[in-house]
Nucleic acid binder design. Structure first.
Lengths: 243, 243
DNA sequence: GAGTGGTCTAGACCACGTT
DNA sequence: ACGTGGTCTAGACCACTCA
C-alpha cells in the first residue's frame, strides 16, 4: 500500500473521508473486481483511525454494493452486476414525470363480491365484499392515469362518501380509517390502450401504456389495497439505477 | 414505554433483536408515522444495551426508510411515501423473468460516425467513430430481447472479432479491454413492436414491449456504453418495492 | 443550558475459514 | 494456531435545537 497520503480535514466526518478515499481506489481501477483488499488492521494503520471508524466506512461501501465481506476470509471488491435479469442484480428506481395530483375524477365507487383472481390478490375468501374504485388521475390539466382500486369493504365503511376526488386514497385510508401503510409492491408491464382507456385518458387507442399492478400492505402480511393503474407512456418513464 | 419484556437470545446478534423489536412497534402502529420515539438513553436502558448497539439498530432502520433522525431534535417515525411519482418516493426494483443468456445472435457489428442525438448520449463530439452492435438475446430457446449497443470505437479495437455471440458484452469490456464498469442508469418506456423487431423476436407486430435505454459508466462520468433494448413484455416484468 | 443525535476511540471477546 | 471480520461495551467530545 503506497498511497500518496491521507490528510484528513476537520469539518468532515472521518469515516466519510475514509470512504471517499477507498471509493477512489475502487473507481480508478486500482483495485479490480474480485480482488481482496487489505484487512482491517492494515487499513486502520494506513488511515490512522480506530477500527470503529474504519468499519463504518467499509460498512457503507458494503451497503452500496461496492464491497463484499466474509468472516474468516477477507474483504473483496464486488463484481458489478449491471446485467438486467441477472441474479443479484437490483437497484433503485424512481418514476420520472409530473406529480400525480391527489384525487381525480371518480368514475365509480361501488361494492361487489370478490371472485377468484381478485380474492387471491387480496388474500380474502371468495365472495367477500370489496370496494371497487375507478378514477382518472391528473398531472396538471392532463389525464395521466386510469386507476382501479380494490379494498376489502369491512375496514372502510362509507368510503364512497370520502373526498376521493381531492385527496390521495392512501391518505384517506391512513387519516380517516387509521390504517398504517407500511410497504407496497408493484409489478410493471407494457401494454396498450384499449378503446375505453383511450377515451378516459384522451389518447388514441393502442397508445403504449404502463400497466402497474400494486399491492399495498398495512401490516406485515395484511393487504390494504390492490390497484391496477394504466399510466400514459408519453408522460411517465421509470428510471432505474444500478450500483 | 411499557413493553412486556425484552429477553434477548444468544445466537442472534443483539442489534438485530433490538431492530426487530423496534420494527414490531412500528409495524403494529404502536408508534404512528410522524411521532417521536424515545431518545437513545431511554432505549439503551430499556433494552439493556450499549449505545453503540442501539445505534446500529436505529441506523439500520433509518437506512431502510422507517425512521428519520435529526440532530438536536430527536428520532421520528418516517411517513411512508408509497405514492408513485411523489417527491422522495423511491424503492428497489428487480427484473422478473428468465435470465438472459450471454451473447446471442449477432445481427451486425459495424462502425459509424456518431450523429447528434447519439453523440450527446455518449458525451462525445459529433463525427467520432463508434461501434454499433445489434444482437438478439435469448432466454432459453426463445428470443427475448433485441439490443443495439453503441460504444466509442477508440477504446475497443477489434470488438467485432470478440466472442460477442457467447459472452456478456459487459464481461468482454471488462476482461478484454480492462474497463471497470461502475454503474448504470436505465430509462424504461412502454412501446410496441414494429415489423422489424417483431420479426427478430418472433412475435406479432404491435406486441407490447419495454424499451430500455441504458447508459453504463466506466468512471464517475465516463460513458462506456449506450444501449437500447426492446424487451418482450410477455416474458419480462419489473418488480418494484417501496419502503 | 439541557437534551438531542453524530463522531471517534480503545479494548475485549467471539465465530468462522484457512493453514 | 492464526488471521479474518462480527459484535459489544464504556466513555468521551462535539454540533445542533429548543426553551
Amino acid at each position: 500500500m503506497s498511497t500518496p497520503a491521507f490528510s484528513p480535514q476537520r469539518e468532515v466526518a472521518l469515516h466519510h473521508q475514509v470512504r471517499q478515499d477507498l471509493l477512489l481506489r475502487l473507481r480508478s481501477g486500482a483495485w479490480q473486481p474480485g480482488a481482496e483488499i487489505p484487512p482491517e488492521p492494515a487499513l486502520c494503520a494506513h488511515y490512522g483511525v480506530s477500527r470503529g471508524t474504519l468499519r463504518r466506512a467499509l460498512g457503507d461501501l458494503v451497503n452500496e454494493g461496492y464491497l463484499e465481506r466474509f468472516r474468516g476470509r477477507g474483504t473483496f471488491v464486488a463484481q458489478p452486476k449491471l446485467e438486467s435479469g441477472l441474479a443479484g442484480a437490483f437497484g433503485r428506481f424512481t418514476v420520472i414525470g409530473p406529480s400525480l395530483e391527489p384525487g381525480g375524477r371518480v368514475l365509480s365507487c361501488t361494492t361487489e363480491r370478490a371472485q377468484e383472481p381478485l380474492a387471491a390478490m387480496l388474500r380474502i375468501r371468495t365472495g367477500t365484499e370489496v370496494w371497487r374504485l375507478e378514477r382518472v388521475r391528473f398531472a396538471g390539466e392532463r389525464p395521466a392515469a386510469l386507476q382501479t382500486s380494490y379494498l376489502p369493504r369491512k375496514p372502510y365503511p362509507g368510503l364512497d362518501r370520502q373526498p376521493l376526488a381531492t385527496r390521495f386514497l392512501l391518505e384517506i385510508m391512513g387519516e380517516r380509517y387509521g390504517v398504517t401503510l407500511v410497504r407496497a409492491v408493484e409489478y410493471v408491464d407494457p401494454t396498450r390502450a384499449d378503446s375505453y382507456a383511450a377515451k378516459q385518458l384522451g389518447i388514441k387507442p393502442a397508445t403504449p401504456l404502463f400497466r402497474v399492478e400494486r399491492t399495498t400492505y398495512a401490516g406485515e402480511d395484511r393487504i390494504a389495497e390492490y390497484r391496477v393503474s394504466l399510466l400514459r407512456g408519453d408522460i411517465f418513464r421509470y428510471r432505474n439505477e444500478f450500483r
